[in-house]
Design a protein around this nucleic acid. Structure first.
Length: 673
DNA sequence: CGACGGGACGC
DNA sequence: CGACGGGACGC
């Protein structure tokens, strides 16, 4: 059986399809956000293999439901005339328990596409399974979805870690994908792949991130980041090389095309950037430290007005259109990152075919103008800042070696990242609901540029003051975020889910031995969308799982926030009532004091409201928001910036306390939340 | 018909 | 200042 992502939820139910259950509106599975890569634009490119549309929602039903549009080909032998003899996309799946059977695996994969075959690899002689298998999907889209949804997200019963889902050797090539690999040096050794991904995400969908590690599995401070298009890679180099310094590092990142030596098949292959670079000159001259001054400040709002979030067309997709001609990306390589997505093409007219800038630039893409990628004045730092992606829950934990979360549950998770039991976010989705909350506990994500950490130089237009103002609430965000995380539930889930989740949490804590990993790994439901602010001050939304970005606020997020809010309130009420009732006897030891929690809750709530309101406003940011513009600022400032200030409060504790409180509450309140 | 072997870029 | 993970082919 498979342990579903929503572990707790499924436990005992015996269903194999955790996703579908909830009732949430059809968007249950995080995987196909709005149509899987179809049509949704993102800052990244999408390849269009089969049209953007297409598999909107495929609800996998029991049997061989969706056969993708015809692929008539008989087995594979290749029909004579058909150029594409096989649309099949074979995935290699690692970390499969040797005891697993096809029945354990297939259902999981069928959730994401038409599975043509599942082949467990076993030793020819001994018959012993090798701990891996191949899953063949009818289409590349299906395969992409599966990778996004499953890679590193599920641990099969008996498994020692989450399954690894990537294209089988040669598949990418066979399907025409190419990748552009960048070598990235001077990484904060504490940085997670996810954080690195976020740093590069603005320039295009990151297909894979690999951190080089030593024998002890410690980061060596360098790694590789892959993009599917050269322009993305080039844009990242231009924007980050020598310019972006990760938090805690003394030197800025080194970002250059990786040596083709080992990994890259073709030398002249598409992958090796340097040689085939665009004449544009932006180049890759990483070594040259010369600051590139791009002609324009492309990134600046060409005309602030030209595009606003309200603008019509681009509103739907920020992504850069991908020239269909470009080789599509196959999707995530299944890297360590959590998911990724491939995309689909977009139509976009606005993009130049070749050197346009990918993403981020597009994120805030203004109207039709294609922003050249080259980052303009704004140094990437700013960009980053504005993007300031997530304060992922995990981010909060990572760097604090000293005092990681003390919650017991975490420890059991053992391996790497463990999400909070409730499912906070662990891997994949990290986005917290309020996303805006950014910072989490005192720990800053490594991705934080140095500059912001301490030197608070207001970037253009940004006033320090503004930042500071917002800082005040800082201490809470952390709790809030944690709280939310723990409480978080899938957007689709209702109160019931909550309950479950809660249960799950406790269960986890209590049952160390169980395949926690799966439960944990399986990210609990959370909303993968997070709100961000472009340099110009416009808000946009980024889905950490699908890597899509858009101007409009996804209803998923809205719902999510609503739920959060509700949760909070109910929680608060519960707490209150409890207090009044004086039913404290059962309070677990961990719970320090109801009152305390209450206070925290209130604070958190207060925070929340602020955040929620913020989104509403549409800034008309001139460049950056004025000091007075609170909304976005909050987001940014809260998270980073003054982490130290909050030192007084130990996030871990608070979190823990809240968690305990929640559990307690839930336990004592069987029925409604 | 025939059915899992070969070996690891090279400074 | 660090340079490549990581398991891989059965019907």
């Amino acid at each position: 059986m498979i342990i579903p992502r929503v572990g707790p939820r499924v436990r005992g139910s015996g269903r194999h399809h955790p996703y579908r259950g909830g009732g949430g509106g059809g968007d249950g599975p995080p995987d196909y956000p709005a149509g899987g890569g179809g049509g949704v634009g993102g800052p990244s490119y999408r390849h269009g293999v089969d049209g953007p549309v297409g598999h909107g929602h495929h609800v996998p039903m029991g049997g061989g439901q969706r056969r993708s549009s015809g692929f008539s080909a008989s087995g594979r032998g290749g029909s004579p005339d058909n150029v594409e003899s096989s649309n099949f996309a074979k995935l290699f799946v690692g970390s499969v328990p040797r005891t697993a059977t096809e029945e354990d695996i297939r259902p999981l994969f069928e959730e994401h596409g038409n599975v043509i075959e599942v082949a467990l690899i076993k030793d020819r002689r001994t018959g012993q399974q090798q701990g891996c298998c191949f899953v063949k999907y009818a289409t590349l889209e299906d395969a992409d979805r599966a990778i996004r949804a499953l890679h590193n997200q599920f641990t099969l019963p008996g498994g020692h870690g989450p399954i690894q889902v990537r294209y089988a050797d040669g598949e990418r090539e066979r399907l025409g994908a190419v990748e552009y690999k960048l070598f990235v040096g001077s990484l904060n050794k504490q940085a997670t792949e996810k954080e690195i991904e976020e740093i590069f995400a603005p320039y295009g969908r990151v297909e894979d991130v690999y951190i080089m590690k030593d024998d002890m599995k410690q980061s060596r401070g360098c790694g590789f980041v892959k993009f599917s298009h050269r322009d993305m890679a080039s844009a990242a180099i231009d924007a980050l090389n020598g310019k972006y310094t990760m938090r805690g590092c003394d030197q800025p990142l080194t970002v250059r095309f990786a040596d083709p030596k080992k990994g890259g098949p073709a030398f002249g292959g598409p992958g090796y950037g340097p040689r085939s670079q665009p004449p544009s000159g932006l180049g890759i001259k990483p070594t040259t430290k010369r600051r590139i001054t791009y002609s324009s400040s492309a990134w600046h709002p060409p005309s602030p007005r030209s595009r606003g979030p309200s603008d019509g067309d681009r509103s739907s997709k920020i992504g850069a259109p991908t020239p269909s001609s470009l080789p599509g990306s196959l999707g995530p390589l299944g890297g360590p990152t959590n998911g990724s997505i491939p995309g689909v093409v977009l139509t976009s007219s606005s993009m130049p075919q070749q050197g346009f800038s990918p993403s981020i630039a597009q994120v805030p893409l203004m109207g039709q103008q294609v922003l050249p990628l080259q980052k303009p004045l704004m140094s990437p730092k700013h960009l980053q800042q504005s993007l300031q992606m997530h304060p992922l829950p995990q981010s909060s934990v990572p760097y604090s070696q000293g005092q990681p979360l003390q919650a017991p549950m975490h420890q059991q998770l053992g391996q790497m990242q463990i999400p909070l039991s409730g499912g906070l976010g662990s891997f994949p989705q990290a986005a917290l609901p309020g996303q805006q909350l950014v910072g989490i506990g005192g720990q800053l994500p490594a991705s934080q540029p140095l500059m912001q950490q301490q030197q608070q130089q207001p970037p253009l237009g940004m006033s320090t003051t503004g930042q500071q103002q917002l800082t005040a609430p800082t201490s809470l965000p952390s709790c809030f975020s944690n709280l939310s995380s723990s409480v978080q539930h899938p957007v689709s889930s209702g109160p019931a889910a909550v309950t479950t989740a809660a249960v799950g949490s406790s269960v986890v804590g209590a049952t160390p031995s169980m395949p926690v990993s799966s439960a944990m790994t399986a990210g609990p439901p959370t909303c993968n969308w997070t709100e961000h602010t472009s340099p110009e001050g416009y808000k946009y939304y980024y889905n950490s799982m699908t890597k899509e970005s858009k101007w409009e606020k996804p209803e998923e997020l809205s719902l999510f926030e609503q739920q959060q809010q509700q949760k909070l309130q109910s929680l608060q009420k519960s707490a209150v009532s409890q207090l009044q009732t004086q039913t404290q006897p059962q309070l677990p030891p961990q719970v320090q004091s109801t009152q305390q929690h209450m206070a925290q809750l209130q604070q958190a709530q207060g925070q929340m409201q602020i955040r929620q309101q913020a989104p509403t406003q549409q800034l008309q940011p001139a460049l950056y928001q004025a000091p007075g513009a609170v909304s976005n600022q909050i987001t940014q400032d809260l998270g980073y910036g003054h982490a130290q200030a909050r030192g007084a409060i130990d996030p871990a504790r608070i979190q823990q306390g809240l968690q305990a409180a929640q559990e307690w509450i839930w336990k004592n309140k069987p029925a409604g939340t």
